[in-house]
């Protein structure tokens, strides 16, 4: 270990040579100013690139404004059309007095015959089903009232059904 330490002393002496390596004369006198210059240049480039990006993104807007600058007549036309558009909007807003309740009215035999809020009696339900020709009412409110049809499109009514009999023939 002592031998190692002794050898390390030699290594340390050798490493002292590194301390004598010096950069070219005057190098440090301009170092800090170069750093500051690069910081300033970087900040300027950053703000410039930001301005360029904004200009690139808003290019269409600049072109749009350019049209007005080159043709003053277009300005008047554009302003007039804007006023017209505003006027039309105001007029239509005055006439659109449709009550929301009318949009919810339901037309049809059930709606006219039966008050949707009043409780429906069994007779009324049977009568309405009969008048609709095979419509099956469901207690499930989600189920739509579609006419029940057969595979071939015929409405399924009582007339199409035939009672099956298992009694021997002739009885």
């Amino acid at each position: 270990m002592n031998q190692n330490e002794n050898n390390f002393e030699q290594v340390k002496k050798l490493l002292k040579l590194k301390q004598h390596e010096i950069p070219p004369p005057g190098y440090f006198s301009s170092f800090s100013s170069e750093v500051i210059l690069r910081i300033r240049a970087g900040a300027a480039a950053h703000s410039q690139s930001l301005a360029e990006r904004l200009q690139a993104e808003a290019g269409w807007f600049h072109r749009f404004l350019g049209i007005f600058e080159s043709r003053p007549g277009v300005v008047g036309g554009f302003a007039t059309s804007l006023c017209l558009l505003l006027l039309i909007t105001v007029v239509f807003a005055d006439h659109s007095d449709v009550s929301p309740g009318s949009l919810l009215t339901v037309s049809g035999p059930v709606a006219t015959a039966v008050d949707p809020i009043a409780p429906i009696t069994t007779q009324q339900l049977v009568a309405s089903v009969g008048s609709m020709g095979g419509i099956v009412a469901s207690t499930n409110p989600v189920t739509s009232l579609q006419p029940v049809t057969t595979l071939f499109g015929q409405p399924a009514s009582a007339a199409l059904f035939q009672t099956a009999s298992f009694a021997p023939a002739g009885q």
Binding site: K13, L14, L17, H20, E21, I22, P23, P24
Partner: peptide, 18 residues
């Protein structure tokens, strides 16, 4: 790209010994 050694190097006894 090594830097030059300064003037004092030759007067460093440890280095001169080497």
């Amino acid at each position: 790209s090594l830097n030059d050694l300064d003037f004092n190097t030759e007067h460093n006894p440890d280095l001169v010994a080497l």
